[in-house]
Amino acid sequence: MRKWTFHLTGTTHILNTVSTFGSSGGLGEAAAWLCLRQDIYISLTSQQPLRTDLHSFHHSDVFQRNDDFAWSSRMVFLLAKVVQSAFTDPTMAQGVQHEIEEWYSSKPDTFDPVRSAPRGPEPDRRFPTIWLLLPVHGT
């Protein structure tokens, strides 16, 4: 285990033990979402399964709210499900793909780019340019 993952070991243990953190509202839920984002990053960079129990997030109010922050959190949750299916249960991928398509087709217009330009052959255009309204839209 790499030492840059030790903080996540303790945090995920607490979150998985107290399963209401992911849906308790307030600071506890905010911390749970931050932990989930860090767990996704570490899982992808270390090629290891998620440590966070995703079931504790199912009752979060982000699945009822309709603001951009809630929509962004829903996509983070879907990304976590993709990562989980890649490392633990590949049969889950088909259902997650449907959920992602549903998210994309029903997302608010605010998630659409205000400007975009395709990539080009120039060194400063290796990636497409995509402008969004708020940082939360790119999370």
Rank of each mutant, 00 (worst) to 15 (best):
Val96Cys: 10
Pro135Ile: 09
Trp131Thr: 12
Lys107Leu: 01
His58Trp: 00
Thr110Arg: 04
Val76Lys: 07
Ala31Asp: 01
Gln64Ala: 09
Thr129Ala: 15
Ser24Asp: 04
Ser85Trp: 00
His13Gln: 15
Asp112Ala: 15
His58Asp: 11
Gly10Gln: 03
Gly10Asp: 03
Met1Cys: 11
Leu8Phe: 02
Glu101Tyr: 05
Pro90Trp: 08
Met75Trp: 02
His137Gln: 09
Val114Met: 10
Arg51Ile: 04
Leu15Trp: 01
Arg2Met: 00
Ile14His: 09
Ser116Asn: 13
His55Gly: 13
Asp53Val: 03
Pro108Gly: 03
Ser72His: 02
Thr139Asp: 15
Val96Tyr: 02
Trp103Asn: 05
His7Ala: 10
Leu36Pro: 04
Thr129Leu: 14
Thr110Met: 06
Gln64Ile: 08
Thr139Phe: 11
Val83Phe: 04
Val76Met: 04
Pro49His: 09
Leu54Trp: 05
Asp67Ala: 05
Ile130Thr: 11
Ala93Asp: 03
Val62Ile: 09
Met75Gly: 00
Thr91Arg: 14
Ile14Glu: 06
Asp124Lys: 13
Ala70Pro: 03
Pro113Met: 07
Ser116His: 15
Asn16Pro: 09
Asn16Tyr: 10
Leu34Lys: 09
Val114Leu: 08
Cys35Thr: 10
Ala93Ser: 14
Thr5Leu: 08
Thr110Gly: 04
Phe87Gln: 09
Gln84Pro: 00
Ser85Glu: 07
Gly28Glu: 08
Thr88Asp: 15
His13Glu: 15
Thr9Lys: 11
Trp4Arg: 15
Gln48His: 13
Met75Val: 04
Trp103Gly: 04
Asn66Ile: 02
Ser60Gln: 04
Leu36Gln: 00
His98Cys: 05
Val114Tyr: 13
Asp112Val: 11
Val76Cys: 06
Thr12Gly: 07
Arg125Ser: 13
Phe127Thr: 12
Pro49Trp: 13
Thr129Ile: 12
Trp131Pro: 07
Ile40Leu: 02
Thr5Met: 08
Arg65Phe: 02
Ile14Lys: 09
Asp39Val: 02
Pro135His: 09
Gln38Cys: 06
Glu122Gln: 14
Gln64Leu: 07
Asn16Glu: 02
Met75Gln: 06
Arg115Glu: 12
Arg119Tyr: 12
Thr5Glu: 12
Asp112Phe: 10
Leu132Arg: 07
Trp33Ile: 03
Asn66Phe: 05
Glu99Cys: 01
Val62Gln: 04
Asp109Pro: 10
Phe77Pro: 00
Phe63Glu: 00
Asp124Ala: 12
Gln64Glu: 08
